[in-house]
Nucleic acid binder design. Sequence first.
DNA 1: CAAGTGTCTGCAATCGATTGCAGTATGACC
DNA 2: GGTCATACTGCAATCGATTGCAGACACTTG
Lengths: 356, 356
Amino acid sequence: MARRKPDPTDPGTRPTLKRLALAVGVHASTVSRALDPQRSTVVAPAVVARVRAAAERMGYRPDPVARSLRTRRSHLIGVLVPDIANPVFSPIIGGIAEALAQADYALVVADGGTDGNRQSDMAERLIAQRIDGLILATASRRDDLVERCRARGLPVVLVNRASDDARLAAIVSDDAGGMALVVAHLAALGHRRIGHLAGPAAISTGYLRRSGFEAALSAHGLENDPRRIEAASAYTRAAGAAAAEALLARCPEITAIAAANDLLALGALEAVRARGLLCPGDISVTGHNDMPHVDLVDPPLTTVRIEHREMGQRAARAVLAAIDAKDAAAPAAQTVKLAPTLVVRASSGAPRDLNA
Amino acid sequence: MARRKPDPTDPGTRPTLKRLALAVGVHASTVSRALDPQRSTVVAPAVVARVRAAAERMGYRPDPVARSLRTRRSHLIGVLVPDIANPVFSPIIGGIAEALAQADYALVVADGGTDGNRQSDMAERLIAQRIDGLILATASRRDDLVERCRARGLPVVLVNRASDDARLAAIVSDDAGGMALVVAHLAALGHRRIGHLAGPAAISTGYLRRSGFEAALSAHGLENDPRRIEAASAYTRAAGAAAAEALLARCPEITAIAAANDLLALGALEAVRARGLLCPGDISVTGHNDMPHVDLVDPPLTTVRIEHREMGQRAARAVLAAIDAKDAAAPAAQTVKLAPTLVVRASSGAPRDLNA
DNA sequence: CAAGTGTCTGCAATCGATTGCAGTATGACC
DNA sequence: GGTCATACTGCAATCGATTGCAGACACTTG
C-alpha cells in the first residue's frame, strides 16, 4: 500500500527543494535563491555555502517540469525534419544537438515527412510540448506553418531550406553560388551543353539551385535551353533516375548533368548506366551536398560540399539568440548564407566531343 | 507594461482549463474529467458535449508541463546514440519516432559520443528532463550506465547493441546469424581462407559477429586461424582501412574479408585498392548493415541487411510496454533478435585460386 | 535615543492541470 | 411522504519550483 501523503522529510525519494530546505533549516525560497548564481548575491554567503553543500550531499536536482511550469521555459528546442533517415539531415541534427547541449538545452526531434498536413500536425505537437524554439528543416518557399509559428511569437529558425519571406532567420548554403561553382568547373572542362536535374520548385534549394544554374550558364556564355532542365518530383534516388532518364531521352546532345542534390545525382548515375553510357566518358554527372560516402560510389561523385554540421550549430545558436532577443524585445532575424566549396572527383571529366 | 496578474477570463492568451471552465460555466475539475475519455463517463453526457464543443471552439490544448507535474508522466522518451551522423542510426531513430508519435509520445535525442563519461552525462540530462523511458543505442557489453538506470526504475530498452546482462530488454539483430550467412555465402563461392575485420570487442555487435564468424568457420570445416582476425579500433572507415591494411599485410593468403560492419568494409575496399588489388578479383569483401547507398559503391557491396527501421519501431513499442508494465508491476524484459538477410552484390566473387 | 538604511529571510501566491472526498440533486421504491 | 441509492459536480489539496512583497534584525547616523 503506497502512502497517501508523501512526507517531504522522507529520504529515499528524489530530494525536493522543500526537503533540502528542511535539511538546511531555511525556507524553500531561500534555497531557491541560494542555488541560482544570479540571485545568490542576496543571500548571506554562509547560508549559500550551507545550502550548496547540502544540495551536493543529497544530490539535489531541481525538477525541470516544475520549473518550466513556473518560468514558462522548457529548455527544449524542437526540430522538424522531412526525413530523419536522409543522410543530409543527420549531420545537421548532430550539429544542433551539440550546440544545444552546450547551452543546457535538449532537443526534441520530430519527423514530419513531406506531407504538409503531417508536418503541421507534428509541429503542433512540438509546440504543445512547450518547446522554447523551433528549427525547421522542412520549409517550403511559401510555408504557412512558418507564418503561424511566427504569429504565435515562437522563435523559429529555418535550416538548409529558406522561405521566400526574408524576415525569417534562416541558415542556408549559398545554393546559387554552389551551382555557379559546378557550372564553372564543367565549363572549364569544355562542356557547352549541360543539363540540369532540378529539385522540387516548391523547395528553396530546388528553386535557387535551378536559377543559380541558369544564371551561371549565361555568365559563361552558354546557351540556356529550358528543355535541358528536368525537375525531379522529390529528392530521392528513384526520382532522380526517372528524371535523368527523361532528360537523356529528350536531349541526347548534353555532355553533362548537374544535379540539384547528391541523391538525384546517384539516380542519374543509374540512368546513365541503364542507357549503356559511361560516366564520365559519355556524360559527366555532378551532385550537391557531399553526402557521406559519395566518394566511394562508382565513379566517385563530383559535388558541392556544404558544412551541414556547422549549419546545424549555427541554427541552434540562432534560435537561442532569438529566445534571448525575445526577452530583450530586440528581434534580429537574419539569413546566413554559408559558402559551399566544390569537391572534384571522378564523375566529371572532359566532354566526349573533346575526347574524339 | 505587462499586467501583474493575468486574468483567467482574458481571451487572447492560450486558453487554460480554468478559462474553458469559466466559459462553459462549470468547474475546472469537471472540464478535466469531461475531456478525458476514461473519466468522461462520470460526467453528464450533455455537459461532456458542451465542454468538448467549447474546447474545440477555443482551441484548448492541455498544458503538458502542468499535466506532467501532476501525473509524473512527461510523455517524453529519451534516445541516446553514439553518433547521430552515423547512417545506421538514422533509420533506427526514424522508426522510433514513428512508433512514438502514434502513441502520442515525443522523442528527445541526445548524442552521447563514444566516450562513456559523456554518455553518462547526457543520460543524466535526459533523465533530468523527466523522460518516461530511455532507449540506448550506445550500450557496451558491460555498461554501468544501463545498470544505474535500471536501479532507478527507469524503463530502459537497448537497441542494436545488447548488454551481457540478459535481464535487460534489447532489440537487436541476430549478429552471429548474420555472419553465418556471410560465411556460408563465401564458402559456397569456394573461399577457404577468410579474414575477419572485427569491431570493438567491448560492443556486443563486435563481439558477437566475431564469435559468430568463428563458429561459422568451424561449421563449414574451415580453419579458424586467429591471426586472420583483426579488430578495428572503432566503427569508422578510417579504422577499417587501417585494420584491413594490417590484415592484408599479415595474411596475404586470404581470399576474402568479412567485415563486421559496412563502414569497416568500405575502409577495407580502400585498403584493397591501395595495395593494388582488385575486389572481388583478388579479394572479396563483405559488410554488415546494408547502409543506404552501399549498392552504389565500387564494387557494390555484398552485405547483411538489417531492418533498422523496424528495430527502432520495436524498441519504441518495447519501452512503452515497459512503462505500462511498471504501472501494472509486471516487468517483462526480453531480448528480441531480428533475423537479418544476406544481400549479394558484386564485392564477393569466386576466390582467385579458382580463377586461375 | 530615535530614526533611517541596508541586508537578509520568510510568507504566500502562482504556474495549469489532476483527483480523493464530500456535497447536492434526482429519481426510485416502499 | 420519507428513505436511500445513484449520478453528477464542486472543493481544495497537490505536484515542485519561482518570486513580489513585507517583516525582522543589525547597524549607522543625526
